[in-house]
């Protein structure tokens, strides 16, 4: 059954609040995908192995296609899209990524892009998809499913990395967790802990999510749960991950 939002979208009957929050959700998704695309493109530059280089470019292209998909829908529905890759949170995540990419640290890049950012994307796309329903919902859910494959694939690679030298791997992961997950934790806290994200059109959309049947506590909780599950699959012990989680900003 089509959700109320989609029926209203079709008939052009969205309330201003619904229109604004859906526009902001799409703006965040498009910005996130473009960050992913740029991250993989930067990563490709640092790789010598031709096969791995091609794989990184392929990944960048897949993120581009996701951004295209969201943009096409937004255009069709005349949503108000604001893309900003240099805002407080997205910009800082990108900076973190570039720092590791410049050091040619492929593992670190994989952790940031494929574990941290993808965990958030998978979970939030799923929650948003179910809340919106209809064509928009399907779009979020199908893109979310593709991101899931990325996460599973990289978890296997990282699990193998951990087995080579558990102590060194965990210490690297811990450093990246605090450098990067802290930004995502601040971004997804009930209030933006570092101010406006530079993507939402007006005030922070978190206060308006209830207009489309969402709330930031559940979105954040589910996203953190997927991230934790990924840590678990990679082989990070519970004793470690609980400390990492408890030390995040909230």
């Amino acid at each position: 059954m089509e959700s109320v939002i989609i029926q209203s979208l079709k008939k052009g009957e969205l309330t201003m609040e619904e229109f604004n929050v859906i526009s902001d959700i799409f703006s965040q998704a498009i910005t996130g995908e473009l960050i992913g695309m740029s991250n993989f493109a930067s990563l490709a530059e640092t790789i010598d192995d031709p096969h791995e280089k091609m794989e990184a470019v392929e990944h960048a292209n897949s993120e581009r296609m996701h951004a295209e998909g969201f943009l096409a829908y937004a255009r069709k529905k005349n949503l108000k899209i604001n893309v900003n890759m240099n805002g407080e949170y997205w910009g800082n995540v990108r900076k973190q990524f570039l720092k590791y990419a410049h050091n040619r640290d492929f593992t670190a890049c994989l952790i940031i892009q494929e574990v941290m950012l993808e965990s958030f994307a998978i979970s939030m796309y799923n929650d948003v998809g179910h809340a919106l329903g209809g064509e928009a919902g399907d779009l979020f859910i199908s893109i979310g499913n593709e991101e899931k494959e990325h996460l599973e694939h990289s978890s296997d690679l990282l699990c193998a990395e951990l087995k080579k030298d558990p102590a060194a791997f965990e210490s690297k992961f811990e450093e990246i967790h605090f450098n990067c997950m802290s930004i995502l934790a601040e971004f997804s806290a009930t209030t933006d802990l570092r101010g406006h994200c530079g993507v939402c059109n007006g005030d922070c959309m978190k206060g308006s999510l209830h207009h489309v049947g969402l709330d930031i506590v559940t979105l954040r909780g589910n996203a953190m749960a997927i991230y934790e599950e990924a840590l678990d699959n990679i082989g990070i012990s519970g004793e470690k991950s609980i400390i990492w989680m408890a030390r995040l900003p909230a």
């Binding site: 009930t190 506590v217 954040r220 909780g221 589910n222 953190m224 749960a225 934790e228 599950e229 678990d232 012990s237 519970g238 004793e239 991950s241 609980i242 989680m245 909230a250």
Partner: peptide
């Protein structure tokens, strides 16, 4: 806000 979302895990 977060506790109930955490999956079961070994703590100590």
């Amino acid at each position: 806000d977060i506790f109930g979302f955490i999956s079961p895990k070994e703590i100590f």
